[in-house]
Simulated scan of single mutants.
Amino acid sequence: MSTLNIALPETLQAFVEEQASAQGYEGEADYVRELIRREQDRETLRAKVLEGAQSPLGPPADDAYFDELRARAIRGQ
């Protein structure tokens, strides 16, 4: 694992320390890593939403659509 050193104003450093402690992280680095992972997840989700918005429309998601999905799941398809 590589190391990244960052300088934070005292107010941000205090915030990170408080959050790490309050949320049960082993240390500030674990808390910051989790923030970065969340941002990666957010970016991935955003990309998928944009991809979906640009795709052609599918069938309507009505009762018949979900009935067919259930039937396919039961058949193992």
Rank of each mutant, 00 (worst) to 15 (best):
T3A: 10
Q77Y: 07
M1E: 09
A61K: 14
D30C: 04
A7D: 09
D63R: 03
E17Q: 12
G27P: 06
R42V: 02
D67G: 06
A22F: 05
L50R: 15
A22T: 05
R72M: 04
V49D: 05
E28Q: 11
V16E: 05
A53G: 08
E28S: 12
Q23G: 05
N5L: 10
Q19S: 04
D41Q: 15
Q54H: 12
A14T: 11
Q40T: 12
M1D: 05
Q54N: 14
E18H: 07
R46N: 14
P60L: 02
Y25M: 01
S2F: 12
R37I: 09
G58L: 00
E68G: 00
F15Y: 15
Q19W: 08
I74T: 09
A14R: 15
F15I: 06
E43W: 13
A64H: 03
L4M: 12
P60K: 01
L12D: 12
L50E: 15
A7I: 13
E51V: 02
T44F: 13
E34I: 02
A71C: 02
G58A: 01
A22S: 14
I74G: 03
V16A: 04
S2N: 15
L8P: 00
A29C: 08
A61P: 07
N5A: 13
E26K: 09
A22M: 05
F15W: 10
Y25K: 01
L69E: 07
E51I: 03
E43H: 11
Q19E: 12
N5Y: 05
V32P: 00
T44V: 13
R46Y: 07
V49H: 11
G27C: 01
P59Y: 08
L45P: 02
A73M: 14
I6T: 01
G52W: 04
A61E: 12
E17W: 02
E28I: 09
G24H: 01
A29M: 09
E26G: 15
A71E: 07
R42Y: 08
E17N: 14
L57V: 10
A7H: 09
Q19A: 02
T44Y: 11
G52M: 10
S2K: 13
Y65K: 00
G76T: 01
D62S: 00
E34W: 03
A73C: 06
I6F: 03
T11I: 07
P59W: 04
S21L: 10
G24A: 02
E51N: 07
E28N: 14
L57G: 02
A22E: 13
L45T: 06
I36C: 06
R72S: 06
E10A: 14
E51F: 09
V16H: 08
A61T: 01
S21V: 11
Q23E: 14
G76L: 00
K48Q: 14
G52I: 03
A71K: 04
Q19N: 04
L12P: 01
V32C: 02
Q40A: 11
R46M: 04
E17K: 11
L50A: 14
F66D: 00
L50G: 09
D63M: 05
Q77E: 15
L8M: 04
P60R: 01
N5D: 09
R33A: 11
L12K: 08
Q54F: 13
P60G: 00
Q13M: 11
A7T: 12
N5P: 11
R37W: 09
K48F: 05
D41W: 14
L45H: 10
